[in-house]
Design a protein around this nucleic acid. Structure first.
Lengths: 138, 138
DNA sequence: TTAATTGCAAACATTTTGCAGGTTC
DNA sequence: GAACCTGCAAAATGTTTGCAATTAA
């Protein structure tokens, strides 16, 4: 049963040209269990509590590879850490600056109207909308 | 003449409750010369080439204080460094992921339509739109 | 068996901090 | 002279790298 999930993940990695080692599947298992945003440290903690031992270096190597191959998206809103977002199709985020939590906003719920002309000699790579929020004051 | 600029900056700092030391004015001089985005290191370099010697610690302390007092805005798009934006009124950015440069987009040039409801118990603090760009392929 | 991958520890880069000495009002 | 500010060096993070040992095709 668990084994089946791992087989599916192996296929997913293969589709993106990533050969599947045990460690990479362990990491994928954490990330792709549900749509979510995690920092490298959170991933390492989760692996630990799942009794999987994967070194920090391998976690970072793997995350960078997943990003390069389009399996993951990096989100940069918190200067202290990079978040890895297991949802790769276009969408946006709330960022709670107090709790440092990211919350998805489906692309359909925000409409960005006219776009300014791009600077000469450049092409657009992506559009990120971040709504910074904080807990309501008492 | 130069002296006059420094007097104006001193007044600007005072308005924001920041007492004006020589170092703080040196830093303000660099930042507020024109609307721009600089990393701490770029600011330190500029100070050096202006023959102003301000220690790294003081630059960081000052930048944090300016941000806290609303004289500056931090921009987080590049995981490797924080940018300090001398334009504090609402606007958006192009970020060239190759050259790591920020370019302003006036708020009027982007219209963000409907906004999704905020998560319960939170209030909005700000809206950031970043259009990631890269040099056109040859 | 050759190439790819892992893990450790050391290296790095950016930012923060502790504290002694200096400055300011 | 009391409170504040600066600068140095050391510390703290988060991330990357070098390299020897291990695993996989």
């Amino acid at each position: 049963m668990q084994q089946e999930v791992r087989e599916q993940l192996k296929a997913k990695l293969a589709q993106h040209g990533v050969s599947a080692t045990n460690q990479r599947i362990d990491i994928a298992e954490v990330l792709f269990e549900m749509p979510q945003h995690m920092s490298a440290e959170q991933i390492i903690e989760r692996l630990k509590s799942n009794d999987k031992s994967v070194s920090k270096a391998t976690v970072y190597n793997t995350l960078n590879m997943f990003v390069a191959e389009g399996l993951l998206r990096e989100v940069h809103v918190d200067p202290e850490r990079t978040f890895y977002d297991s949802t790769t199709h276009p969408h946006h985020h709330f960022f709670n600056v107090k709790t440092r939590e990211l919350i998805d906003i489906p692309a359909s719920e925000i409409s960005v109207g006219q776009m300014p002309p791009l600077p000469a000699g450049t092409v657009a790579e992506g559009l990120d909308v971040v709504i910074r929020i904080r807990p309501s004051p008492v």
